[in-house]
Write a protein that binds this DNA or RNA. Structure first.
Lengths: 106, 106
DNA sequence: CACACATATTCATCATTGCTAATATGATAC
DNA sequence: GTATCATATTAGCAATGATGAATATGTGTG
């Protein structure tokens, strides 16, 4: 495995650090969508969604293609989809782990 | 797969959203370490590291055990380690695209 | 007990990020 | 050309997150 620059890695991970961005990723995980479709899906603000899409693109998590006056965005590739799936897998496991610990002090 | 509450998920993902926290995770990925060892490793501030450790614990990413006056932290389980490894795998795939992006949301 | 050491917490300040409204760009159709 | 629609960008402000100094808590030792 090649060495990965930490700042590049943080830029990448930044993509996952906001609720709206996660919701966008989940919305376009399996099928590409236009910006307006995503805006509708999330009941969001056009400017706001557009900025988050720009962020996600910069992070390398999604790609866009222009088709006429529309821009379609989708998850960059299968690895990114796998990562999104893995979040759920690990989180499920962590939740069970915590739940099965009857007397954790917190 | 059970449905995962989005806010719980965001809390989980927040653990990966800061450079110091990623460096901590990498530092204790393979072997548990005391707080002071981590502070030395990262050349960090004790208060600051302690706060990030608290965050990571709250996110479910790490666990701590007290041994005498020391507290040892380690990655919660193998899945968390796998996730950290997967970041590198996916990043390797995407690295060139990210390197040219200078922006976050702006 | 007093002391030294390891870690956690508080607090005030500072820095970064996200938000919305407004505006700009770019594409298509008339 | 102009009008219209889709998307991107800018700017100022609001919200959130990170920081280090100081302090508190906890743990073993003499």
């Amino acid at each position: 495995m090649i060495n990965i620059d930490i700042d590049t890695k943080m830029k990448f991970l930044h993509g996952f650090s906001h609720k709206t961005r996660i919701l966008i990723l989940e919305s376009i995980k399996e099928e590409e969508k236009t910006v307006s479709q995503i805006v509708d899906d999330l009941n969001g603000n056009q400017s706001n969604i557009s900025q988050h899409l720009s962020c996600l693109k910069g992070c390398g998590l999604i790609v866009g293609r222009q088709d006429g006056k529309y821009v379609y965005y989708r998850a960059r590739n299968q690895l990114v989809r796998d990562l999104l799936t893995m979040f759920d897998v690990v989180l499920e496991d962590v939740q069970n782990d915590i739940a099965s610990c009857k007397n954790h002090i917190e």
